[in-house]
Design a binder for these strands. Structure first.
Lengths: 150, 150
DNA sequence: TTGACTGCAAACGATTTGCAATTGC
DNA sequence: GCAATTGCAAATCGTTTGCAGTCAA
């Protein structure tokens, strides 16, 4: 979820620490590791996946802490929860605006930037409904890997 | 989920029956009731909500049948599952293409049609990824009711 | 008649919670 | 030192499943 030409992981980690402190969140070892894990890989892991990966670094970390941390960071806008068709939720570091491609076969989620969509105006009818804070596009399809496999 | 000027509930129910028969699905009482319930109200009920509502008509229907029916109808494209930020899945009859407005406060889901988005071209970079079968916009915000309440 | 469908009850997986011990500030 | 955070274990919630009886075709 990091675009390397824009900033480095360590830069993002610094921002993360500042964000936490401003929000009154303690910068614990667990939170740091979980957030760094999300930055390091461009995929969209489930809580359980994150847990498996980081137990190599911190063997004592518990799965409930991963869940709790993700929920806390989500509340503070540092992490985004991605709704997929699967039962497990998936997560990503909330760094730059983008949209999602989901493969119906392998369930993999891919990021895309789509400035044309970001710029498009909302339908006028929305104004009566309320105030929009975010708009997001989700596309379903079959990725080339899975197409080849069939 | 029905746009009244386009067709009536009974017309949609006829289509539903034809669809089922073509797909080799038996037109059972339970399936009929569940689908009609989805047509009758423009909201996006969870399986449990559907079950509560229809027990007034068919007291013996079980919650697992509702789940099973929704899954079956989803597989056949007659029903759509909506991913929200909540833990429960929500459902709607799959009748015409539209997008969703979700209120972050009351979690209510509203349908909107948005032809400008439907017509917009996908980013060229997608073609390398695979074949897209659907694209959908989801907007989060706070509805006027909830704004007034705060 | 017969296989598809249903209701029941029990299992399941993902996530949440209460509590005591621990840790960052 | 103290409140926030963690790890543990147990609970909860939404959903799924095996099985025997039932029903649409």
């Amino acid at each position: 979820m990091l675009s390397p030409e824009q900033s480095s992981i360590s830069q993002e980690m610094e921002k993360f620490i500042i964000h936490c402190k401003q929000a009154g969140l303690k910068v614990t070892h667990q939170r740091t590791i979980i957030y760094r894990e999300l930055l390091q890989r461009p995929d969209h892991p489930a809580a359980e996946t994150i847990h498996k990966r980081i137990t190599k670094e911190v063997p004592s970390i518990s799965l409930d802490t991963v869940y709790r941390t993700l929920a806390t960071l989500e509340q503070h806008g540092l992490v985004k929860r991605i709704q997929t068709a699967e039962s497990q939720a998936r997560f990503e570091a909330a760094i730059f605006p983008h949209h999602h491609l989901i493969c119906s076969a392998c369930k993999d989620v891919m990021d895309i930037v789509w400035p044309e969509f970001d710029q498009i105006e909302l339908p006028a009818s929305i104004h009566d409904w309320g105030a929009i804070s975010s708009k997001n596009a989700v596309m379903y399809g079959v990725c080339t890997n899975c197409q080849a496999r069939c």
